[in-house]
Design a binder for these strands. Structure first.
Lengths: 247, 247
DNA sequence: TTACTTAGTGTAAAAAATACACGCTATATT
DNA sequence: AATATAGCGTGTATTTTTTACACTAAGTAA
């Protein structure tokens, strides 16, 4: 059957083998690494995985993956987040690209870093799924283990980023459940900015922006006096964007 | 001569053709694009080249080039700036990575964008050098032509970046000659922020930071009253970094 | 000498940021 | 039922920062 087309047949086989040899290099040149921030039990946490593959097998690392050929960076970040957490519709932001020659021991891999802010606790607990990881855990940012690759650096830059961003944009709300108390909100600011804030001044300023809706509703099931619940009013973003909020 | 090895001969030819087809793709997967800001004659300008190669031959574009395999992104940006302008020791900052699938018509090229601030005019005129460009010009940011690729978007994001940065970091000084007048400094702020500032309030605030050294020296060779020259005191950065400067 | 152009200066009012302490109230305990 | 507990919620005075605003001074050119 192939007698007349021997050449072509062999060439096809060969083509496939060459492509297999070269394309993986191509495919492995970008990756996305994600710093997923979550707020739970008064602590700021990030999602870390325990690697199950070389290099850095058994090390802790930021979740990440390779970018595929037919997806944009943002799409890739969204996909990777979904694969890891099952979550969709989470706002992720690209914040820096790490491209030192030897950052990956197996070749040149440039990594584009994204962060996202997730609501933890409550009914929306994030159950990480992953095939290249043994396990995934939420770990307090003040108590991080040693990380694989240059992930320590990637984390630190992400942390700096949200410290700056929280003064300009209402990102704190993304870490809280839909209904929250002012004390919880203040906790988010305190943990991210890493300093104590004055309760009265905090409340005065926050309420003055007019982006909080008093729900006329109280916490339920807490010991001691229940606090009023608030909701974030998304239509009134603009005012917070325009100016630095100093605490 | 090749009778016994016809297959191998053909396969070799084929291998070369396949590699040529695939490897350039690999090499071309990252590029650096630079937004080089300069301040001259009271105007904020950027360096644009007129392309002399396909794709987008004859279009205006941001200067940029491919990242080589043995250099980090920062090194690559520094090299590309040097090749284009002959300048060294210029601080460049990476600010965003553009990776839409179809941003480059000839394949997947992810571009890491950097900006730099340069002193124009005086004796330090930048003479751009380039081999893939017909010419390079400094063009007022308020009067930009249509740009190749997604370079309009890259420029806009860079512009936003320096608008925000100038409120936190003393980048204005990098656009001015070593000795400058307060009016020139105010001009830089006005052009970048795109609004008029009050002269007295501007001077009061700037001087209050204590980062300006009065040189007890006047402008020379100007029509009309000569202004006092100042110099930026680099040791006193910190104060400006810590807080937003509002104008 | 005059006309012109830019340099250089101060104050008052408004707004924003800061510092600071105690009574309230819902729950848990006895 | 009384009491202890622990987080909730509130106001004012002071200081600092921001804003608005207009004229005189000095040097150049004709």
């Amino acid at each position: 059957m192939f007698t007349g087309n021997k050449y072509i047949y062999l060439l096809l086989i060969f083509k496939i083998s060459v492509l297999k040899e070269v394309l993986p290099k191509f495919n492995s040149t970008f990756s996305i690494d994600c710093v997923l921030f979550g707020f739970d039990e008064g602590e700021l946490k990030i999602l870390l995985i325990e690697r199950n593959e070389e290099p850095f097998k058994d090390w802790w690392a930021l979740p990440g993956n390779l970018v595929e050929e037919n997806e944009s960076l943002d799409q890739s970040a969204t996909r990777i987040l979904h694969e890891l957490t099952g979550l969709s519709d989470i706002y992720m932001e690209q914040y820096y690209t790490f491209g030192d020659v030897n950052r990956h021991p197996q070749g040149r891999v440039v990594s584009i870093a994204y962060y996202a802010l997730l609501r933890l606790g409550g009914d929306k607990v994030v159950k990480p799924i992953s095939n290249y990881a043994k396990q995934a855990y939420w770990i307090n940012v003040k108590d991080l283990p040693k990380l694989a690759f240059d992930h320590q650096q990637i984390f630190e830059k992400g942390m700096e980023k949200i410290m700056r961003r929280i003064k300009h944009q209402p990102i704190a709300f993304e870490l809280l459940p839909e209904k929250f108390t002012l004390t919880q909100l203040q906790n988010v600011y305190e943990v991210i900015l890493n300093k104590k804030l004055d309760k009265r001044n905090f409340r005065k300023k926050m309420l003055s922006f007019g982006v909080l809706r008093d729900l006329n509703e109280k916490q339920y099931g807490v010991s001691f006096r229940a606090a009023t619940l608030y909701k974030f009013d998304k239509r009134k973003y603009a005012k917070l964007f325009s100016k630095e909020i100093s605490f």
